[in-house]
Design a binder for these strands. Structure first.
Lengths: 218, 218
DNA sequence: CCAAAAGTGTTATCGCTACACCCATGA
DNA sequence: TCATGGGTGTAGCGATAACACTTTTGG
C-alpha cells in the first residue's frame, strides 16, 4: 500500500508553525498526526499530495515538494504502508478555515509540537532540515510570507529558519542586490511607527537568475 | 506495487559511466533499463535497494541514496508500479564481474547512453543533477574513485561532474586545505613520467568537518 | 634534451562581516 | 522629545580566481 503524508509549514510573526491533525481512525484515534491518505489506483503520487493539501487546507497553489520515502516494514503497526512524504509551504493568512476545522487541525509552534504517531516525528525533523538546506540556495522562504511583505518580516522568517539572528543591514543588502524584490510605495505600519516598505517577489527576475546559476546564500 | 530502481554510477579515467541492464522479462525483453526489483513484503525499502545493488554488482558497501519517488499512473504500461529510485556510486575497479555478467549488464559512457525503457531516462537525468548538486557541498566524489587516488585523478572526476575544467592549482589548494586527504609516500606513474602522489580519503577528519559545518565547494 | 604532466606561489578582486549613524513617527 | 524600529554606508578581512614558473623523468 502506498500513502502520502504531508508536512505543512506556515509562518507568522511569532515563528514557524506546523499544521497537525487529530486522527479520526483507529488505531491511535484522536492522536496528533500529519495529514495523509492512500494513493488512489488511478492517481499520480504527486497528484495525491496536491489533493491532500487541498482537502485539508482549501489551498491549491502552494509550494509542495517531495521529501522522501518512508518504507520501514513496521513503521505502521497496522499494515505494510510505504509513505511518500511531501512538505508544503503556505501562507497562513491565506488558508481557508473551514476545511481545516473539519479535519480537527491545529497550527502548533514548531518549537512546541505534540507527540505524533508512527514515524511522523522523524518526518517533521527531516522536513525542517530539508527546508533549512534548501532555503540556503533557493528563495523558498517567500512561499511562507503573504504576497506583500516587508524586509524586516522576511528577515524574521530567515532568523527562524536558520535559528539564529542574521544581521539586519547585511540581510537587506544581499536580498536587494539580487533584484528579485519589487518595492511598492506603500508602508506597513503594523510593527513600527516609522513603517517599513512593502515588497513583492519578482518571479521573472528570479527565474532568470536561476538560469545564470544563482547561489542564494543568506 | 512498490519497486526500487537503481541508477548506478561509476568513473574511470575516460569519464563517468552508468551501469545498465538488458531486461529479461516482457514487455520490452532485451531493451536496456536500470536494474530494479519489487520490494518484498517483509523488506524495508532501503534494504531492497541495498539488495538490488548487491545482487547486480556483488558489492555491499557502496554509497547509496534515495533519489525520489516515480509515481505516475502510466509510467509502466503493464501495471501500476510506484518506483522508489535510488542512486549508487561505486568504484569500477572493485566491482565483481560475475554477477554483472549474469545480469547482462554493461557500463556505458554517461555521455553516450542507449535508449532506456519507461521513465528511466528521466531518472538518470535527475540522478546526475542530484549528484552535481550534492557534490558541491559533500565530498561524495570520493565514492567513485579507488581507495587510493591521485589529485589529478580527483580533479578529472570533478571536471566530469561539473562539466567544466577546474583550475589545477586552485583545486589542489582547496582540497588540501580541508585536510581530508592522507598523503601516501607512493607515486602512481600510470599517467605521467614524473608520477603523482597517491592519497587516501581521511574519514575521521571529514566527519569532524561536518560537525563544524563544512561547505565543500570546489 | 625535450615533451608532458605534476607540483608550488603570488596577486588582484570580490563578497562577506562587523560595525555606527541617521530617519520617521506615535506616544 | 524620546523610544522604537527602519533605512543606509563603510572599512577590513578572507576566500576565490587568474595566472607563470619550476620539477621530474621516460623516451
Amino acid at each position: 500500500m502506498v500513502a502520502v503524508d504531508c508536512v505543512i509549514f506556515g509562518f507568522d510573526p511569532t515563528g514557524i508553525k506546523l499544521l497537525v491533525f487529530q486522527r479520526k481512525v483507529q488505531p491511535f484515534f484522536g492522536h496528533w498526526s500529519l495529514i495523509g491518505s492512500f494513493v488512489q489506483p488511478k492517481e499520480d503520487v504527486r497528484t495525491a499530495a496536491i489533493r491532500i493539501v487541498e482537502e485539508s487546507t482549501g489551498l491549491t497553489d502552494v509550494y509542495l515538494e517531495e521529501l522522501g520515502c518512508y518504507g520501514q516494514v513496521d513503521r505502521d503497526p497496522g499494515a505494510r504502508v510505504v509513505s511518500i512524504v511531501h512538505y508544503a509551504l503556505l501562507r497562513i493568512d491565506e488558508y481557508k478555515l473551514s476545511p481545516v476545522e473539519d479535519y480537527q487541525a491545529r497550527w502548533f509552534d514548531f518549537e512546541d509540537l505534540p507527540d505524533l504517531i508512527f514515524d511522523h516525528q522523524k518526518m517533521v525533523k527531516d522536513a525542517m532540515n530539508k527546508l533549512r538546506k534548501k532555503s540556503r540556495y533557493r528563495p523558498i522562504g517567500f512561499e511562507l510570507l503573504p504576497a506583500q511583505f516587508t524586509i524586516p518580516q522576511l528577515k524574521k522568517l530567515y532568523d527562524a529558519i536558520y535559528q539564529k539572528e542574521l544581521d539586519r543591514r547585511n540581510f537587506r543588502k544581499k536580498i536587494l542586490s539580487m533584484k528579485i524584490l519589487n518595492k511598492l510605495n506603500i508602508k506597513d505600519r503594523s510593527s513600527s511607527k516609522k513603517g517599513a516598505y512593502l515588497y513583492e517577489f519578482n518571479k521573472e527576475n528570479y527565474e532568470q537568475l536561476l538560469q545564470e546559476g544563482i547561489d542564494f546564500k543568506l
